[in-house]
Simulated assay, not measured.
Amino acid sequence: MPNVFTTPPPLEPGSRIAVAAPSRPIDESMLDRACDRLRETFDLEPVVFESAHKDWEWLRDNPQARAEEIMNAFEDPTIRGIIAVTGGDDQIRLLKHLDPDRLTASPTRFYGYSDNDNLRLFLWNHGIVSYGATLHPTLTVDPAIHPYLERYLRRAFFQSSLGVVEPAPEWTDEWFDFDSGESREWHENSGRTWHGENRVTGRLWGGSFAIVKWHLQTNRYLPNPTDLDGTVLALETSEDVPLPREVRYTLRTMGERGLLERFDGVMMGRPRTFSPDLEWEPPEDYGEQLREEVLSVLDEYNPDATAVFDVEFGHADPNVPLPLGAKATLDPTVGRVRFE
């Protein structure tokens, strides 16, 4: 683990925030919608970089240019933050083009999740805290920004930490229909599920399950195993909705590599159970099955770990901008999650 983690300075009302596409692009109407919400709701001034106007073919063929743009944004003294337009499936190809010295010389708040967890794990290795939010879908879906999301996004933009993250009163994983613009169906939140009795605090490492799996497979961007001692593992299963046993297999390999035992805590995001491109139909008890699989591996490889499930981060809504690299406290005695 880096000796010192830096939380880049918060933004201020009127700050310039770079809008870039280090993964995939979004169409111009969504780009405009999200930028309008940055201005009108948060009083931030989006600075749209060239990549945000490029098509997927150009972005696919130019990973070095995408990496260069991110480094340029870090180095620009007029830019206080950088937000990715959306996720994707190839950002790991950018990492070899990044110069960590250029990033650490001027730490800047980076916002992204899903495929952008590739870049965020890279930043973690160099001691820079980053936040889980993107233009799309964070700032494009729903007729208005959900009040729960707005509350914690304001903290991620303008405060030093997220602080205590309360459970959301409701949740949904429905796809938002941009054509109709109608509200999605929301469900009452039944709360989080805790395992273990110990209060633990550690730096947050992880993110999207798929991205963590890629980093385990490539073994090029993982921290030293000892860097994970005493940390908190955060995982969310994204719109991929993997079979619960696939999550178990990956965690089991982490156990066999001597990695899983190093985490003092495990935090699982509320799983998404719907995506229009899924090739299988998740059961109604998908979340329960996922929890059972995770706990079965923890019982074998890390029985003393404290775990909490159905935390508000990831691809179900509403969510908080998960701060990788920040200190997370999991306190089962009072059922509290806190980030500092």
Rank of each mutant, 00 (worst) to 15 (best):
S238Q: 04
D317S: 07
P100V: 11
R192N: 13
P167Q: 04
Q64Y: 00
A133F: 05
D43V: 08
P283M: 02
L59R: 12
D90Q: 12
H136D: 15
H97Q: 02
L153V: 02
A52L: 12
R245T: 13
P147Y: 00
L324N: 03
S15T: 13
T78V: 07
E12D: 06
T134M: 14
H187Q: 08
D227H: 08
A305H: 13
F49N: 07
D76C: 05
D61H: 13
T6N: 13
E197I: 07
T329N: 09
N189P: 05
T273A: 14
D173A: 01
S106G: 04
T172V: 05
H53I: 03
H187I: 01
T237K: 04
R199H: 10
P169A: 08
D76V: 06
L322F: 00
T7M: 14
W214Q: 13
P276A: 03
E256L: 01
D299M: 11
G287S: 04
P318E: 02
N125F: 02
A133H: 02
I17M: 06
S23N: 14
I145N: 00
P147N: 02
L290D: 02
F74M: 13
E293T: 03
V129L: 04
N72K: 08
F313I: 07
W124F: 14
P225H: 05
Y113G: 09
P22C: 10
F122G: 03
H136M: 12
R257Y: 03
I128G: 09
T7C: 11
E28Q: 15
L123F: 06
G181Q: 09
F49W: 14
A133K: 03
C35L: 00
G207R: 07
G191Q: 11
L216D: 15
A20D: 01
L38N: 01
N198W: 01
N319L: 10
S180A: 15
L216P: 06
